[in-house]
Simulated assay, not measured.
Amino acid sequence: MKTIIKIQILSVLVLLSSCAPKTIEGEQGKIKRDALMVVSKYPGRIIEIYANEGDKVNKGDTLFLLDMPEVEAKMNQAQGAVNAAEGQYKMALKGATNEQLEQIMAKLDAVTEQYKFAEKSYNRINNMFKDSMVSVQKHDEVYMKYQGAKAQYVGVKAKYEEVKNGVRDEKIQMALGTLERAKGALEEANVAYSERFLVAPQAMTIETIALHPGELVLPGYGVANGYELSKAYFRFTVTEHNIAKYKVGDKVAIESPFTNESYKAKIVSVKQLTRYANITSAFPEYELGESIYEVKAVPAAGTNVNNMITNITVLLK
């Protein structure tokens, strides 16, 4: 009976030893990546979502489609302004039409006849006034009409010369400036309208999607976030009694105990951590009051980082 009990106890100990966690040696750290966020520049309502959490997407892939009715209205307004400005500019270049020229010539003929008649009337009255045959009041009335006819003739003749000789260069430049301003407003509206497609800024993984179809997106709001695939680095927390082993520029070997992969890397920075919350080693061992440092290393050139698992434990040898 005692032999059976001993055998059972031994079996339990063997089973427990087989289930014990794997012993990990070396400075422990994590594979890290830069976080990316997909943000909208303009307000809109989500119509379609083309990605799911956990997907890997390429740079420029469309992730969301927004509805922007206000931007569409601005586009229509800007297009109307461009059409009107183009018409004004073409009119300034071509000058007056034949019909407009005929109208101003007819008006000039009419005021010329009126001016000649008023001039003759004034000369006749003026001679009679010199002989004291008309009153001062009558002379002044005829003189006033003569001056009015002369002023009207001068004004219409100046207008005729302007139409005949074409539009001034200043007016053409004004019309051109108005057209360029309208085109700029239309281009701005087109750029805003193109932002209805929210695309991946880099090759990345989609970790979380914050909104769903039908929800409103505000400017600057992060619709989705994830990690950049094309870049990765190794981050270790090292106590001060071990920090002397690591210098910036050192080439080191790094192993992943759970994926059985090894990497060559180069240390690019060593800095002190000021808060306990920044420690990311799985099992930090340090004395109370001991300073903790961050050692950052980047993979050697040519290393394929796309398949590295973010936040997995690695060992610095």
Rank of each mutant, 00 (worst) to 15 (best):
P201K: 09
Q202W: 08
Q202A: 15
M204S: 12
I206V: 15
I206S: 02
I206N: 04
E207L: 01
E207V: 01
T208F: 10
I209G: 07
I209Y: 12
A210K: 13
A210R: 12
H212V: 09
H212P: 00
P213S: 09
G214S: 11
G214V: 08
E215M: 15
E215S: 13
E215D: 15
E215H: 11
L216I: 15
V217P: 04
V217C: 02
L218H: 09
L218A: 15
P219G: 06
P219F: 10
P219S: 07
G220T: 02
Y221G: 04
Y221L: 12
G222H: 03
V223S: 05
A224F: 12
N225D: 12
N225T: 07
G226D: 11
G226W: 14
G226F: 15
E228R: 13
E228F: 03
L229Y: 08
L229H: 07
L229E: 05
S230W: 01
S230D: 14
S230N: 14
S230F: 02
K231S: 09
A232C: 09
A232M: 12
A232N: 10
Y233S: 08
F234R: 04
F234A: 03
F234S: 03
F236R: 04
F236M: 05
T237R: 03
T237C: 13
V238K: 01
V238R: 02
V238F: 03
V238G: 02
T239N: 12
T239F: 05
T239M: 03
T239S: 14
H241I: 05
H241W: 06
N242M: 13
N242H: 11
N242R: 13
I243M: 00
A244Q: 05
A244G: 14
A244M: 03
A244C: 01
K245Q: 08
K245I: 00
K245E: 07
Y246T: 00
Y246F: 13
